[in-house]
Design a protein around this nucleic acid. Structure first.
Lengths: 203, 203, 203, 203
DNA sequence: TATGAATGAGCGTTCATTCAT
DNA sequence: AATGAATGAACGCTCATTCAT
């Protein structure tokens, strides 16, 4: 048991880095902190990762893949009902990002992580999500439940941008939101989704 | 007289810092650069501001107030037409953020960095914007052009969250967006607004 | 007194760096060591010098200028006698480098300090020495006391290369040399100069 | 058998280190690179060598021995003609150092870095060269083609010092030399040798 | 004999902040 | 009120060396 835990330095470093980012924010991540928190020498980090960027890159890929899996599940739960699928994707978003905005920063495949160069894996992890969403929207357009006067890509970007925006809002202003609206965040999010889905429907 | 000079220096520092941020980006701001560019000693900066963070905080307030003014103008241009007012507010948003990513970072900086404390002024600058938007929405609800089944505060937050989300999307992935959609950003934004405004209308 | 000493941080840093180089060799110089030895914070070094390279650059220029002055004096002491001037220049070399080979590394205007980019000042300090020596040789050729079948530049390079070579030899093998020859270094150097000067003479 | 394998590994490490130094320069040698290139574990290096320095020391000895062999060949090619032998030794020097700065660094590395300890082997490798040259000079003095007013040891050191000096000059400033003299390095070296040999002759 | 994961002091450099003047 | 020299912790990263296996 202990050997299992002890040996997975790679995972330990990744998890520690993630923890620090969750607690202090993405730009507060430093190799020093990771080493200290992981109880590992600074040099050890570089046995497992080429650079700090590589750690962030790996974390990003991991997050995106996890998110993709959530999206896929969401889609599978509502076969042949594209609108419900999109709605479920949004909820999966909320679920995934629930506690921390970090994941939104990390995952946002449309968003640049400053200075982080796109490796093939990184790019692919982004495209995979993109394709899934676009696919659902196109399916909806073919089934004539989603308006066809807007291209699927645009809708996909809008959906992603607004979702991430809502995540940020919730992460940074949750208190504010609940106080003013006298409603819970999921409740408000529910409204957001309804409005969004509603606007997608063919009239 | 001396207070006037002092106030000037306060403003000078602020303006200089803003200039640097606009030219080089938020993370390139350093007290050294500010002091040099403002032709002021480094120590002097600390007579007027407690910390670098305080400067950024003030700039954030300034930015939000500027944004508020733009929103107010947008509202005034379409008297008694709440939907057009909201639409104009969104466009003002885009306009405001268009050229300078800085403002997007600045306006949402404290929102995105949960670790930083919101000062009362900072909070107020945010509330002022909220109130304006809420007012417009409530007006629309009273005039029965905006659906009444959702409270104005919720709609206001959704509008703010999604708008900022779109700004971030554009700021960080404009290339992606234009490449994938084969459309210009304003064009995509136009779609976003249409969908959003449409979803607000009473059916 | 103490204020005079204390205030000359620039000189202090330079002198400290020189000391470290003399004691441990050029490649053993580190900003850490300089800071520690000079009893100054690491950051302070960068108030006075842009980089470690800049320190070495300044030291190089200083050394070259000092050497040039020695050369000039050597030349002045033997007006209109080029061979004696060259001989005196060689002796000045020995005198200058007496204790430490560092100066040979530092000063060698024909030699590259790895990675040290030539600033105008650095280049000029090199050219000044070059010109002096070449001038003396050309003078000797015009006066027909130095052989004219070899160009002055070549002779200048040979003189410099062999002199620096002798300095390195003495610095690294003084014990060896004295033991094998049963002579003092100046004595051996005297022979070196005689041979060299002799070989320059017109036959 | 096992000793044979062990010896192979010893040689393998040495050859690998030399290769790296030849390709990337002396300061680019790292134990990591050696281990990787030799396909040997890092720890294994320390079974055969006490330290990185020890490797460099051994390489220095190897280089000096190789140089000695070149010198011996040079001597053999001109039997009973000491001046030609010395001249040939100098050319062998140039030839040896020509393509690779490494050898110049290596041969004179421990000479230039006073802080490093000379092991007996290291010293001997140096003495061997000295002795060869001294022998040739003494032969010349006995044959009365080399001046007898200077002891052979002194001449030997002068020859070594000036030769190494010329090598360093060429290695570090070849561009300067060729540009200023408008001659090729071998050409300039030829002049150096002529002057030197000339100065050795009995008058 | 051989491994290679792990170390940790070290590198050059930056920069927000302090404080004696 | 204003200065700016000085600080020192922190940054990302390297690498010779050790040691449990």
């Amino acid at each position: 048991m202990s050997s299992e835990v002890a040996k997975d330095k790679y995972g330990l470093i990744l998890r520690t880095a993630e923890q620090i980012m969750l607690e202090e924010g993405m730009d507060q991540l430093s190799m020093n902190k990771v080493a200290r928190a992981a109880q590992v020498a600074k040099g050890t980090l570089y046995l497992y990762f080429d650079s700090k960027e590589a750690i962030i890159g790996e974390l990003t890929i991991k997050s995106r893949r996890k998110l993709l899996r959530h999206f896929q599940q969401a889609v599978q739960q509502h076969p042949e009902q594209p609108l419900k699928q999109l709605s479920a994707i949004c909820w999966a978003c909320l679920e995934f990002f629930k506690n921390e905005v970090l994941y939104a920063d990390l995952v946002s495949f449309y968003e640049a992580n400053t200075g982080l160069q796109e490796t093939p894996d990184l790019l692919q992890s982004s495209l995979d999500i993109s394709e899934l969403v676009i696919g659902v929207i196109q399916d909806g357009q073919e089934r004539q439940v989603i308006r066809q006067d807007v291209d699927a890509a645009s809708l996909s970007f809008i959906m992603w941008g607004t979702n991430v925006g809502m995540m940020h809002l919730f992460a940074s202003k949750s208190h504010h939101v609940t106080e003013y609206t006298k409603r819970g965040l999921p409740d408000v999010f529910q409204t957001f989704i309804e409005l969004f889905i509603d606007s997608l429907k063919v009239k």
